[in-house]
Design a protein around this nucleic acid. Structure first.
Lengths: 385, 385
DNA sequence: TGAATTAGTAAACTGCTCAGCATTATCCAG
DNA sequence: CTGGATAATGCTGAGCAGTTTACTAATTCA
């Protein structure tokens, strides 16, 4: 807790930031409203907001039709389009690129299928093409981007590399940060997909009210992302949440119960088998229900370990299987009751397979914010890594 | 991230606090040194430190023999004895009371045996007597105490009550906060013993360099305390770290391997059996070594679950068994290698059975600090709950 | 004894917030 | 259409905190 001394200029910086925080994510606001929100006096807010307008961080909205008595107030709006960030999900089967403004509004979203067998070079080339397409549509250049966050499967270390256990072929040799740094001058971040999805779920998803969250990315692979006390926990080596690696936790084999369920039509695509089983279970098929129960039982051990270790408020069931949460959540709850001391809330994700890219956007925005907090806000320009 | 506006007086408060922070835990310091540490100018520090002296937070040390060239500087010292806190460990077999000044120096420590079968009323009465004795020796009254933290076994909720699973007979009905609040006007806190021991280990123990710590309280009971990103994680319901409740994790039965080891002399006291086995294993006894290996194997599953879930930097082996860490750590390391992706450092606690009370002191001091941060520092007086 | 060095102190200056008052723009009633 | 009521804006002076600069005081060493 090393508090450091403050002087006047730093104080002004902080007050200016508090105005930005009060402006952002709100309707265009009058000076009086901002003064209330930021806890400052009206004159102080006035001059602060003037300099924000002069620097390009905010813009004035001249008063229009106003049904209230008295002189109509000018309203100030945060210029969310002063900068943009990219959130990118590099999945096994797809690439998802999201372009967002500084308020987190999505400007463009682009989805491209990916070859599951592609080597890192090919995969990164596909990512490059997708990014180019998004920038082209938005009429932007890499210099307009303030931060980029990439999501990949497998644990990611501090340098953005995936050392151990990734289902992306050859990915342990890839250095995605270096690859993107060649094109983007701004900060570049790589993060594990489960962690990003957890972040998204707290930002725009089903757990926005909770500070302690265990997020399950359930699909053909199972993973977890942890948010404790409102912030993402990466672990010392970036490998937090990898409980699936424990042999007693059968997350690796759990989806097998679904894929090997008797009765799956031979016509079903490899990725569709699980969906078929869930639907069959929903329709009352006996064998399918057994398969789901077995899957849930294997899943529950790992979830219980996380719940007992962390005592979260909410467990979010997300990932590709979350569309079938209606047949999973109840048996999962029953299994957890057997294992746990205190049962957390169980919720199904609503963000579907966009959660990873969305979480990447949020992390990129956090990066921008932390730059603002440490460097203060001069004119809005892209920070350099 | 709701930044709030600042004005001059708040700024002064913060700078004053930064001087206190720079003063505390250091040798008596000159104004110039403080200015460097706090990042303020010399004149500014001078007037701040003057008011600190006037308020009773600091005292001057007139310059004595000084071998350096130039005018000798006055030195200022934090008045650590301006206030005191109590850290109390209510164990099954013992009660340990620590009285500490504001710098964390222990003024008095008192250990009293406790009846394992005592009901809560009797136990709390014994605690009262121990507290009275400590206060008497220090010549203090309850009004001189600024914060009290109690450590108990079993998970503790936000109100300081232990709802589930405690080895203290009848304790679920006890309300220790209410009991102590009748005597102490200051803030009172109750916390789980494993969590407190973890805090102590990061404060004065073997993990002071780490921010992500899994602490094991190993004894006839096994428990865990978690420190992530440098702060204690309680979990949403205060039950974080209770991985031992999982059936696949055999922490409940693990110490049984030691107690049921053949060859234990009948003369050994019930609590001494384990120590005998550890010693025998150290001496090369075949059966004892097998017992230790079995114990370690059961222990390792739970540790591996925590390590995989959290990816800590350090695992600290503490509690009553930590004296025998030399025969446990190596087999534990081998077991963990089988389970984990990334092996954290393994360290043996050096605080022994004082860690819980010491952690309680640290938490009480944190309480005092957070009061200072939020309320600022007027004259040093005991805060009221 | 005087030069060098460092600490303490006072004054001038900058920059910020705030309170209060005059000004301005709008609505509405007569 | 006009004057009064209402509320936002703009301006000025007061107060406060920290920095800079310069000066004085106290000590050591040659």
């Amino acid at each position: 807790m090393a508090t450091t001394g403050t002087d006047l200029s730093r104080m002004r910086e902080m007050n200016q930031l508090s105005i930005v925080w009060a402006l952002r994510g709100n309707q265009p606001s009058t000076v009086t409203e901002l003064a209330g929100r930021a806890g400052l006096s009206r004159p102080a807010v006035d001059v602060l907001v003037q300099t924000l307008v002069a620097d390009g961080w905010a813009e004035v909205e001249e008063p229009g039709a106003n049904s209230v008595v008295g002189r109509p107030a000018r309203r100030f709006r945060f210029r969310a389009d002063a900068g943009h960030v990219l959130g990118i999900d590099i999945g096994v089967h797809k690439i998802l690129v999201m372009l967002s403004d500084l308020e987190g509004n999505l400007v463009h979203t682009l989805r491209r299928p990916a070859d599951p067998e592609a080597d890192p070079r090919t995969r990164l080339a596909a990512v490059d093409r997708a990014i180019d397409e998004v920038l082209r549509r938005a009429g932007m250049t890499p210099a307009d981007i303030w931060a980029v966050t990439l999501g990949v499967t497998g644990p990611v270390d501090a340098s953005g590399r995936t050392i151990i256990s990734t289902p992306l072929p050859g990915w342990t040799a890839a250095d995605p940060v270096a690859h993107l740094a060649a094109r983007f001058p701004c900060p570049i971040q790589v993060e594990n997909d489960c962690k990003l999805a957890a972040v998204a779920e707290r930002w725009k998803g089903v757990a926005s009210d909770a500070d302690d969250i265990v997020f399950l990315l359930a699909g053909l692979r199972t993973g977890a992302g942890l948010i404790l006390d409102g912030t993402l926990r990466r672990g010392h080596g970036g490998a937090a949440g990898e409980i699936g690696a424990l042999k007693a936790v059968r997350w690796l084999s759990a989806p097998g119960h679904l894929e090997n369920c008797p009765g799956i039509p031979a016509t079903a695509a490899p990725g569709e088998a699980a969906a078929w089983v869930f639907q069959a279970a929903r329709d009352g098929d006996r064998q399918a229900k057994t398969a789901v129960r077995r899957y849930t039982r294997d899943l529950a051990v790992g979830v219980a370990a996380l719940v007992l270790a962390l005592d979260p408020q909410v467990v979010v069931y997300g990932g590709g299987f979350s569309r079938s949460a209606d047949v999973v959540l109840e048996p999962l709850r029953q299994e957890l009751t057997k294992h746990c001391l205190r049962l957390p809330e169980l919720r199904a994700s609503t963000l579907g397979d966009e959660s990873v890219a969305l979480g990447a956007v949020r992390l990129a925005l956090d990066e921008v914010d932390s730059r603002l907090l440490s460097d203060g806000l001069a004119a809005p320009t892209a920070p350099t890594a």
